[in-house]
Write a protein that binds this DNA or RNA. Sequence first.
DNA 1: TTGAAAGCGCTAACAG
DNA 2: CTGTTAGCGCTTTCAA
Lengths: 355, 355
Amino acid sequence: MTPAEPRPDGARAGSPRPSTIEDVAREAGVSRAAVSKVIRNAYGVSDRMRTQVEAAIERLGYRPRVAARAMRGASFTFGFEIPQVGNDFLTMIVDGATEALAETPYQMIIAPLGRDQKGDMAINSLVDRQVDGIVAISPRVDPAWIERIAERIPVVMIGRHDRSDRYDTITGDDRSGAEQVMSHLLDQGHRRITHLTIHPSRPEPPWAGQAGDEPHVIRTAVYRERMAALGLEQSVVHTMFDGSEAHDATRALLASPEPPTAIFAGNDTLAIGVLSAIAEAGLDERDVSVVGYDNIPIAGHPLVSLSSVDQSGVLMGREAARLLFERLSGRTEAVQSQIEATLRERRSSAPPRRP
Amino acid sequence: MTPAEPRPDGARAGSPRPSTIEDVAREAGVSRAAVSKVIRNAYGVSDRMRTQVEAAIERLGYRPRVAARAMRGASFTFGFEIPQVGNDFLTMIVDGATEALAETPYQMIIAPLGRDQKGDMAINSLVDRQVDGIVAISPRVDPAWIERIAERIPVVMIGRHDRSDRYDTITGDDRSGAEQVMSHLLDQGHRRITHLTIHPSRPEPPWAGQAGDEPHVIRTAVYRERMAALGLEQSVVHTMFDGSEAHDATRALLASPEPPTAIFAGNDTLAIGVLSAIAEAGLDERDVSVVGYDNIPIAGHPLVSLSSVDQSGVLMGREAARLLFERLSGRTEAVQSQIEATLRERRSSAPPRRP
DNA sequence: TTGAAAGCGCTAACAG
DNA sequence: CTGTTAGCGCTTTCAA
């Protein structure tokens, strides 16, 4: 705006350019290399030099530029790709990882997905930023593509049940979790049970053979098996992931001639949407029971009291960070880590009024 | 682990090093500068060259390294500092910004705060990564320090009501919002109203004179004014931000000889904690009414139905992105943007049983 | 234990 | 319109 800027490099008065490693070296009377070693805690610096350099850093308020470091060595950054910022289960994962990174020089950055964006975009953006490790949560990316990335950067995939010998995976025990849900509902006497889950990938990706590895697909499969085993009629409804469609779908179900007495929702976000439709219809758990998956914090709230499968997101996040650190210190074989799943029974699921 | 790696630079078999701008230039038979211009959409490239270069990029799967770009020019990255990943109000802000960035070459990264970490850490980490713009949401950082950063990088502060001529601000109308809450409760006949809010900074920071600019402090001030004006006894309770302390504090309040008939919570997260204590005590809104602030999505859920002040976080996020882009294209005067606040009355607030 | 020097991949200024 | 060149701030050999 004011075209009379004094010098292009100098910024405005009183704003000295941030100091560089060079400045620190001069101030401490040592070489750049020496400073570099100090800030990296590298081997081969005398105590005297260390104190000198640290004093200079302090005096100058020096902070290493991540970009410059990344060009030669590490960026000291782990990148998290998360499909929805608002999803409380993912939040728990991030919390767990944040905690694990707290006392390390590593920082976490999160690349959120825009609506309708695919996971590739966010993962690519992390790669472009030369993060030292990637935690990917979107289940719908080409495994072969991820493997290629994992050749250069440690990758942990959370959720998907495929095995790779290039990247590590962390999964919940989706089969067991879903079994617990179904047993619970069937034991309570439910027979008309609808399963509500998110849409499968559309259009079918070329690697669709792998779709069976997605957590939601496994949960659905278990539902089908259990229903089939008892000769019960299966009813699977697909919606978008954000809960508002789950609400509408439930309303439609309730208006149908033979509404279900129980709904098994693929995750808690969907279940919350289901509960809202049930409440709006003036019904409760004796009319329609609901069970969710993930045990997000609000599920335990007494006003909501949603039965749900706990698969400790916090633990998953902590584990993800641990696996990345292991890779960084040399591990090359892939690891598959499985987290237990436990159904927490709450008020939202009860024996049906008329079985 | 396997110390017999063939070459330190070469990675493993079949993993060619990612292509650089140099490779693209060679492949397309042009200079590096030409490629650089194409990828930045810069002025001065013939259509023929553009197509050639784009083809080469495609063939090689080239992606520019952000670190290298950041060293000379821009990183095409906006950084968001957010104090709690799980807070749904902040989520709304991120969603708004994500949407605004969707069709641009800019990417967003989020630097979450660890527990007990201060906002400075996350903001510094963003600066270290040479982001092209910063959106800061933590209210408790030294304004002078932020101003210094804003001399080099565009900064938008969300929430705080201070004025700076170096950085932009976006605020809700906290005074009006709090007035609406208090009028609503008083009109309903409540006289014993407790205000529950998060702890003030501790220990007092040197710039504590500015504390009056924090949204929560303003809301508390309005509460005090309105109570004082009617000669009512004030009761302010401070808790941590995560809702579990709000739950405990409420339980204590309910057990006191003269429990409040209404609680005005500083934000929805606290209000949710309050509601859980009320529900656990077997009470409802006719015993103790609750009003929150932020109107997070769950507040509108029929099982919760929390009265709350809406200050459109989505709008704030969108606005933040817009302000950064304006700065990038030359604006130098600071802007203060204010978002309207509107109370949404729901079931959680009702006239007291015995006024 | 310390320092000198060679780049990492890119952009910007300038020359042709 | 296109290419040449000089760094950006750091890490990393490699000598001293």
